[in-house]
Amino acid sequence: MFALVATGAQAAPGDDALFGAHGYRVAYYRAPVPKPPHGVGRIAPAAVALLRPDIDAILIDVLPAEGGHREADGRWRLARERPSIPGAHWFPEAGRGDLSPANDRWFHDGLVRLTGGAKNHMIITFCLADCWMGWNAARRLRALGYTNIWWLAEGTDGWRDLGRPLINARPEEG
């Protein structure tokens, strides 16, 4: 313990502080993510670039709306723009470990609308590199019975590093 204090290092929180009862990451979202959730594949930015959004795959961005909030009527008030992958559907807050009932319903209903209820439609979740929110969203979709889920671990950072353009996203309605 003395070595930790002397060097200024902090002990990492235990797994019980990082994950909730249902297995979703609930704290310290910006950290390396070692592997995709069970039953979910990992996809590279270059592979995503070959796909046509909403035709070959549905792209789901779950980065929170920094400084923004959702009004009672479901509309989002944004404090800053979210540069995202063209054709992606932005569900701010849907990558949190604990979702409010309203955000959970909004995310679920949005996916049903986007997939037409087809549980085997290819869905790719993401946020930023080293971010557990895309992982949480992929795990959540798997728990909802979707079977063709992919996680873009590098998120919009990997897309940008590939030299691909980002566009300002708007939160999904609902």
Results as ranks from 00 to 15, higher is better:
Ala137Gln: 04
Trp132Lys: 05
Arg105Ser: 05
Asn120Val: 11
Trp90Gly: 00
Trp106Asn: 12
Pro83Phe: 00
Gly110Arg: 00
Gly97Phe: 07
Phe91Glu: 00
Pro83Asp: 01
Cys131Pro: 04
Gly110Gln: 01
Asn120Thr: 14
Trp132Ala: 13
Ala137His: 05
Trp106Asp: 13
Gly134Met: 01
Ala94Lys: 02
His89Ala: 00
Trp106Lys: 12
Thr125Lys: 08
Ala88Asp: 01
Ser84Asn: 14
Ala102Ser: 12
Ala129Asp: 14
Leu111Trp: 00
Thr125Gln: 03
Leu111Glu: 08
Gly87Met: 03
His108Cys: 08
Ala129Tyr: 02
Gly95Glu: 07
Ile124Asp: 04
Leu128Ala: 13
Arg96Phe: 12
His108Gln: 12
Asp130Gln: 15
Leu114Met: 13
Phe107Thr: 02
Leu128Thr: 14
Gly95Ile: 05
Phe107Glu: 00
Asn103Gln: 12
Trp132Phe: 04
Lys119Trp: 06
Asn103Ser: 08
Leu111Val: 11
Ala129Cys: 08
Gly87Cys: 10
His89Trp: 02
Gly116Arg: 12
Phe126Tyr: 15
Arg113Asp: 13
Ala137Phe: 05
His89Arg: 09
Asp109Phe: 07
Glu93Lys: 05
Gly87Tyr: 02
Trp135Ser: 07
Val112Pro: 12
Trp132Ser: 08
Met133Tyr: 06
Phe107Asn: 00
Gly134Arg: 00
Ile124Gly: 06
Leu99Trp: 08
Phe91Leu: 10
Ala94Thr: 02
Gly95Asp: 07
Pro86His: 02
Ala88Pro: 04
Trp135Phe: 11
Leu114Cys: 07
His108Trp: 14
Pro92Lys: 01
Lys119Ala: 15
Pro101Gln: 11
Pro83His: 08
Arg96Lys: 13
Asn103Glu: 15
His121Ile: 08
Phe126Gln: 10
Gly134Ile: 07
Asn136Met: 05
Asn120Arg: 15
Thr125Met: 04
Asn120Gln: 14
Gly95Asn: 06
Asp104Ala: 15
Gly97Val: 07
Leu111Phe: 03
Val112Asn: 10
Cys131Ile: 03
Cys127Ala: 14
His121Ala: 15
Arg96Gln: 13
Asp104Ser: 14
Leu99His: 03
Asp130Ala: 14
Ala88Lys: 03
Leu99Ile: 07
Arg105Ala: 14
Met122Leu: 13
Lys119Glu: 07
Phe91Asp: 00
Ser100Ala: 10
His121Phe: 05
Arg105Asp: 10
Thr125Ile: 11
Asp98Tyr: 05
Asp98Arg: 11
Phe107Val: 03
Arg113Tyr: 06
Ser84Gln: 09
Pro92Ala: 08
His121Trp: 01
Phe107Gln: 01
Ala137Glu: 07
Thr115Cys: 12
Pro86Cys: 03
Thr115Met: 10
Pro101His: 10
Arg113Gln: 14
Ile123Ser: 10
Leu99Ala: 05
Val112Lys: 11
Pro92Asn: 04
Ala88Trp: 06
Trp90Val: 02
Gly116Thr: 12
Gly134Lys: 00
Arg105Met: 09
Asp109Gln: 14
Phe91Ile: 03
His89Lys: 00
Trp90Glu: 01
Pro92Phe: 02
Phe126Cys: 12
Gly110Trp: 07
Leu99Lys: 03
Thr115Asn: 09
Pro92Leu: 01
Leu114Pro: 12
Leu128Asp: 13
Met122Gln: 15
Val112Asp: 13
Gly117Tyr: 04
Trp132Ile: 00
Arg96Ile: 08
Arg105Gln: 12
Gly97Tyr: 09
Leu99Glu: 06
Arg96Trp: 09
